[in-house]
Simulated assay, not measured.
Amino acid sequence: MVARMAESSWATSAATRKSMRANKSFDTKPEIRLRKALYALGLRYRVCARPLPEVRRTVDVVFRPAKVAVELRGCFWHGCPDHYRAPKANNQYWADKVRRNVERDLDTERRLAEAGWLLEVVWEHEDLEQAAERVAVSVLARRGSAS
């Protein structure tokens, strides 16, 4: 049964399939570190929420009153211009997957901007404490301009 599943899968082996299925979609270590840094700065937020209820997409951290959304992007999954390296195995599958992710990221960014939101993008390779400070500046500035 396992061999049959691996044959019909996108994974190149059963071990690869097991490894990829174990990847978390939220509450990753970098996300938790970023959220802890934001919390330490006195910021309160929603986690894995839809900033635009009519759009079926979530972002990692949402500051609703300030209309600031924060996405923590993984270098592999989101095609980081500095760190993305195409895998050697199953190259076309992964190239298509990352391209779709990047297109979705751009579409989400456009939709948020049209609705008056600011999207702060944080890459996993960034210093997360510095990124949290950058986000805090944006949130506090937008809170100040809203009053």
Rank of each mutant, 00 (worst) to 15 (best):
A86C: 09
R50H: 01
L41G: 02
R46L: 05
C75H: 06
R56F: 07
L41D: 00
A37M: 02
Y93G: 05
H83I: 05
R33W: 00
G42R: 00
C48L: 11
K24F: 02
F26T: 15
R44P: 03
K36D: 00
E54P: 00
R35Y: 00
E54H: 15
C48V: 12
W94D: 01
H78C: 04
D27A: 14
R46C: 01
V61S: 07
V70M: 12
N90E: 06
R50V: 00
N90Q: 11
K29F: 07
P51D: 08
V61I: 13
P81L: 02
R85K: 13
P87Y: 06
G74E: 04
A37D: 00
H78W: 10
N90G: 11
L72C: 05
V55I: 15
A89E: 13
R33L: 09
P51L: 14
F26L: 09
C48F: 10
F63D: 01
E54G: 09
P65L: 08
R33Q: 07
F63C: 05
R50A: 05
A37R: 02
A95L: 15
K67I: 01
L43D: 01
A95P: 02
P53Q: 11
A40F: 08
A40H: 14
L38K: 00
R56D: 06
P53W: 11
V68N: 02
E71C: 09
R33K: 10
K67D: 00
S25Q: 13
L41Y: 07
F26G: 11
K24H: 05
V47T: 11
C80E: 03
R73G: 03
K29Q: 15
P65E: 10
W94M: 03
F26Y: 15
D96M: 08
E31D: 03
A40S: 14
W77N: 03
P51R: 14
A66P: 01
V55R: 12
Q92F: 03
N91T: 11
V55M: 11
A22Q: 14
P65F: 08
V61L: 09
W94L: 09
G42C: 06
A37C: 03
Y93F: 15
W94A: 10
A66K: 03
R50K: 13
A49D: 01
W94F: 12
R56I: 02
H83M: 01
D96F: 11
F26S: 15
F76W: 07
V59P: 00
P87Q: 07
V62L: 15
T58N: 07
E71K: 12
V55W: 09
F63P: 04
A37H: 01
T28K: 10
T28A: 06
E54Y: 14
G79L: 07
N90T: 08
H83F: 06
Y39Q: 04
P30Q: 15
A49I: 02
A86M: 10
Y84S: 03
F63H: 05
L52D: 04
G74D: 11
A49T: 03
E71D: 09
R73W: 11
L43S: 05
R99G: 03
R44Q: 04
R99Y: 06
A69W: 06
R64N: 01
A49Q: 05
Y45A: 06
Q92E: 14
T28W: 12
V47M: 03
